[in-house]
């Protein structure tokens, strides 16, 4: 199970060009947006693409994004519940 969280951290660092971060720097519960990692609206869109590309989950309502992408933990839970890949 923890492999998914590590995988997510690696993917996020790569996909969102978070060059100055390493997997160990990202806590499972740190907020991804706002004061945590400081991701922005384009990052949300990239995460939606990643969700579909890597896990086969099509997000039909982008507003759900705020909850699903709140933290690595929340993302992992959502993916575990909904992945088709």
């Amino acid at each position: 199970m923890s492999d998914l969280r590590t995988e997510l951290k690696q993917n996020i660092i790569e996909q969102l060009n978070l060059e100055e971060l390493e997997v160990a720097d990202i806590d499972n519960d740190v907020p991804l947006f706002g004061d945590g990692l400081g991701l922005d609206s384009i990052d949300v869109l990239e995460l939606i693409v990643m969700l579909e590309k890597d896990y086969g989950i099509k997000l039909t309502d982008p507003d759900q994004g705020k909850e699903i992408f709140a933290s690595i933990e929340k993302m992992a839970e959502y993916i575990e519940a909904n992945r088709t890949k």
């Binding site: 969102l16 060009n17 384009i42 990052d43 869109l45 990239e46 693409v49 579909e52 590309k53």
Partner: peptide, 10 residues
């Protein structure tokens, strides 16, 4: 050909 990246498109 597949899914494009919004962060590239911008």
């Amino acid at each position: 050909g597949g899914m494009v990246s919004p962060s590239v498109f911008v």
